[in-house]
Structures are given as structure tokens and as C-alpha cells.
Amino acid sequence: MDALLSWLWSSEEEELKMLDFMAYFMVFMAVCTFLSLLFQNVPYGRYASSKYGFPVNVKLAWFVQELPSLLLPLCLMFWESSAKMSQLPNQLLVTMFLCHYFQRTLIYPFVIRGGKSTPFVSFALAFVFCIYNGYMQVRYLSHYAEYPAYWVTHPYFIVGSALWLTGWLLNIHSDHILRNLRKPGETGYKIPRGGMFEYVSAANFLGEITEWTGFAVAAQSVHSAAFALFTTVVLSSRAVAHHKWYLTKFEDYPKSRKALIPFVL
């Protein structure tokens, strides 16, 4: 890993500039993605289409595409110098990132019930994104991010960490509700009920958006902010599409339920 990074970057200053560039490029891609999603849903799940490539088994797709966001950060920390990992704020922020992807890589794919296959293009793009983002987030936090010793008691860190934990738990609980909608042998879609699904159609997406927004508040970096923005763009678009789909699919769908933000949107 050290030899690879030395080959890629001639100095730490050059690598840091590239990490910053990657963050700003992700912001640019978030804008482009927002515009494209005005005309086309992200093609996986209920919106999957054969025109985006051959189908990949949904469990395999989730495991493989999320794996870089877990494996690459671990390699960066254990096989390469991690100058800032002796500092508590950096340790906690990296732990937040890894907790999410530990669950998303090693637990979530193996408890999926049913689920449509993922088109190869969607799978490949998700895989590339996880490499890109996994490197950007954890390399910055483990090697470059500077925080004062009191940062863990700063309001930004406390509020951000609380939001992260709330979103993480909401995301896991909402996935549990969705996973148990159908009894063994049943097929087709059902109306989600319970938890935050009583208020919004996309409680799982609300959880993940809250999670990474909290992470960005706690980390206070352009890298974490870019990730939170990109996540919000993709998942809010999908939340609105889900909400419209539910209203069309079910005549008895709760009319008071919003798409993503309780009582608002």
C-alpha cells in the first residue's frame, strides 16, 4: 500500500490537494446527478431495467459493491502510515464510517429477503463510488485531518455524532421493517407500517441522509460534506419516486404520509 501511494503521489501535499479535488468533484457530480434524476430514476430495485446491463444477484451485488468502503479503509489504516489515528476525534469519525459499512457489507446483504437483481451498470457505478469515497473519507481522516484536543466536546461534534447515531439506528430499523413486510411465501409489494414509516414513505433513506449529514457536521470537512450532499441528492430523488409509486400502487395509501421529511415533504 505504501509503494502504491508513493507511486501515485510524489508528496503528501500533492495527495492532500488530490483529496480536496476529489471532494469538489463529488460536489460537481452531485449537481449533475440531481439534474439527471429529474428525468430518470436510479435503475435498481423496483426501477431496474435490462437496458442497464445483465442482472446481478441482489445479495452478491450489495456485498461486492459495498466491500471497498470497508476493506479499503482498513488497508489504508493497517498497511499504511495513519499519522492522525492516535487522536480521539479521528478515531471516532473513522469508527462511524466503518460501523455503517460493516453493517452494510457483512450483515445487510445476507438478510435480504427476495429483492430484484441489480443491473450491472448500477452495480458497477456503486462499486466505483465506494472505492472513490472510501479512499477519500478515510485517507483524509486517518492521515491529514487536524482537530483540537477538545473537539469531542465541541457542539459540532456532539450534535453531529447524535445525528449520525440517530440516522444509523433509523436506517437499520427501517430496513428491518421493510424486510419483514411479507410473510414466508408471499410475493408483491406491501405498504410499510411502523416506526418512521408512519410519517414518511422512505424512512430508510431519511435515516441514511441523517446519518451522513451528522457525520459531516461532526467532521467539518469538505470531504464529508460532499458525501452528505451526494447521498442527499440520490436518496431524496429516490424517496420522492417511491412516494409517487406508493400513491399510484395503493388506493388506501396514507394520504398524510410525506415522502422524506415528516409533515413537510
Rank of each mutant, 00 (worst) to 15 (best):
R257N: 11
C32P: 09
F127D: 00
K17D: 07
I191M: 13
V56N: 11
A216T: 08
A225P: 00
M196R: 08
N171T: 08
P55D: 05
L165A: 11
L74N: 00
M77Q: 13
L93I: 10
P184L: 04
N133I: 09
V138R: 00
V264N: 09
C130M: 11
Y199V: 05
A124S: 12
P184K: 01
A30L: 01
L70G: 05
L260G: 08
F263V: 09
G134A: 11
V159N: 03
S117Y: 06
L19Y: 02
Y101N: 02
F78N: 14
E13P: 10
A61Q: 13
P119N: 12
D252P: 09
F39G: 10
M26H: 10
H176L: 12
V240E: 00
V234E: 07
R257H: 06
S221L: 15
F25P: 00
A202M: 05
T33L: 13
Y147R: 04
P89R: 14
M29L: 07
M196A: 14
V240L: 03
T232F: 05
L37G: 07
P184A: 05
P119Y: 04
S236F: 00
V56A: 12
M96C: 15
Q220G: 05
S224Q: 10
L169I: 13
G207Y: 02
F63W: 12
V128Y: 01
Q65E: 15
V27I: 10
E12V: 14
L4Y: 08
P73K: 02
Q65R: 08
F127T: 13
V111D: 01
V240R: 02
V222C: 00
P109V: 03
